[in-house]
Nucleic acid binder design. Structure first.
Lengths: 208, 208
DNA sequence: CCTTGTGAAAACTTTCACAGCT
DNA sequence: AGCTGTGAAAGTTTTCACAAGG
C-alpha cells in the first residue's frame, strides 16, 4: 500500500460514509451514486469521490458504487473489517452509558473491558462487562490484543490515567474528560469535549 | 460563497482556551503569555494570538495577558458571560449522564429542562431537573428563553425530534444521535459522533 | 531582553471542470 | 445520457517573520 497524505477531515468522514451506506443497504439499495451517498450528509458528491480517491477506484463510471463492496472497502480502509476491541476507563455515569451504548456494534467496535479505581465497583459487571482494577490493565490488554481505550474519568484524573493506559499498551485514546492530554507524539488522541461543542454553538448563535 | 469572517476551527478553540485559563486562574496565575496558555494544548502560541486577533487586542506587548480580563473577554466573545440555559431531549442513559455532568457549570452553561416521550419518565426528576413531555416544550422554551438543545434519542428518532425542537423555538442543536440532521440552513448543529471518533482513531492506528 | 499583533507566505482542503468509461 | 475520478483552481487556515511596545 502506497502511503500518501490523507487529510484529517477525510479520515473523519470515512465512518460517516460507512454508516450511511449501512443504512442504504438496510433500505435494500444495491447500487448507489455519490449523490445518493452524500444526499443527507451535507457533503457534496465530489467531496466523497475525492475522499475515496486517496485509497483507490471503487466505482463504475456511468453507474455508481456496489453497496456491499463499498461497505467492505470502507471497513477495510478504516480498519474495522474485523471486530475491534476497546476498553473504557472510568465507570461513572458516562462510562456506564458508553458500555451500554448500542451504536458501536454496527461499526464493528466492541467495549470488552472496563476499569476503575473505586473498590466498590471493581468485580461488578455492567452488561457482561467486568469492571477491573487499574493494575489488571496491562495483562488484559495483552491477552486481548487491545490498543484503543476511552477515558471517562474526571478531568483532574485524566492525565495520570492516560499515562497508565499508555504504559499498559494503549496506542489510541478517545478522551471524554474536559482536558487536553500530554502524551508522546506517537499516541493518537481524539477529544469529545461536550462543553466546548456547546460553547461553539452558543458563539455561532450570537455572532453568525 | 459563505465567506466566514471567523474560521470554524478558531471558534472551536475559544472554549478550549477559556477552560485552560480558568485552570490557570485556579493555580493562582495573574498574568500569562500565549506560550503558557497553549503549552498543554498542542496549539502554537501564534495560533492563539491569531485567533484572538479576530476580536481585538487584549494583551500587553512584552508582558502577556491579564488572566481575569482574558477570561471575561473570552466569556463575552463566546457568549457565556451570562448563564446559558440548555435543554436535553431523550432521557436514556446518555441523557441522564449529561444532566448530571458537572463540566458545564464552569463554562456558564446549565441544563434546566429534560424532555422524553416515555410516559414512565415524564413527571419524574433527575437532580432537580423535571422530565417533561414533548408537547410542553414550546411553552418551556418561551418562558425560559432557551435556544439551545441537546439530542440524546436513538438515531431513528433524531430527525423527527430535531424538527419538533425547531418548531418549539430551538436554534442550535448538539446532536449525540449517530445520524446527520436535515434542517433549515439558519439552524446551527454540532455533532458528537462517538463511533466515528473511534473509527478515525482506528484508521490512524492502522495507517499512520 | 521579553512579549503581542499581523500582513504575507506557505500549507492545506474544497470545489470546479472535464476527461474517460459504461 | 449518466456517473466516476482527478488535475487545476479557488478558497481557507496555519505558520512565518518581523515590526512595535513593555
Amino acid at each position: 500500500m502506497k502511503k500518501r497524505y490523507i487529510p484529517e477531515d477525510t479520515i473523519k468522514r470515512l465512518p460517516v460514509y460507512l454508516r450511511n451506506l449501512l443504512n442504504l443497504k438496510k433500505e435494500g439499495k444495491k447500487i448507489v451514486s455519490s449523490k445518493e451517498i452524500t444526499f443527507s450528509l451535507n457533503i457534496l458528491p465530489v467531496q466523497f469521490r475525492k475522499d475515496l480517491s486517496y485509497f483507490g477506484k471503487f466505482g463504475k463510471r456511468g453507474v455508481g458504487y456496489d453497496v456491499d463492496n463499498l461497505i467492505k472497502t470502507l471497513e477495510k480502509i478504516i480498519g474495522i473489517d474485523r471486530k475491534i476491541k476497546v476498553i473504557v476507563v472510568g465507570v461513572g455515569r458516562l462510562g456506564s452509558a458508553l458500555i451500554r451504548y448500542k451504536g458501536f456494534s454496527s461499526m464493528n467496535m466492541e467495549i470488552v473491558g472496563a476499569f476503575d479505581n473505586d473498590q466498590n465497583k471493581i468485580g461488578k459487571k455492567i452488561e457482561k462487562i467486568k469492571i477491573m482494577s487499574m493494575d489488571q490493565m496491562p495483562e488484559f490488554l495483552k491477552k486481548n490484543k487491545i490498543k484503543v481505550g476511552i477515558i471517562c474519568v474526571p478531568f483532574d484524573k485524566a492525565q495520570k490515567v492516560a499515562e497508565h493506559m499508555v504504559k499498559s499498551g494503549i496506542k489510541a485514546i478517545l478522551n471524554f474528560a474536559p482536558t487536553r492530554l500530554n502524551l508522546s507524539k506517537n499516541m493518537f488522541v481524539n477529544y469529545v469535549d461536550m462543553a466546548s461543542e456547546l460553547g461553539s454553538l452558543i458563539f455561532k448563535l450570537k455572532n453568525l
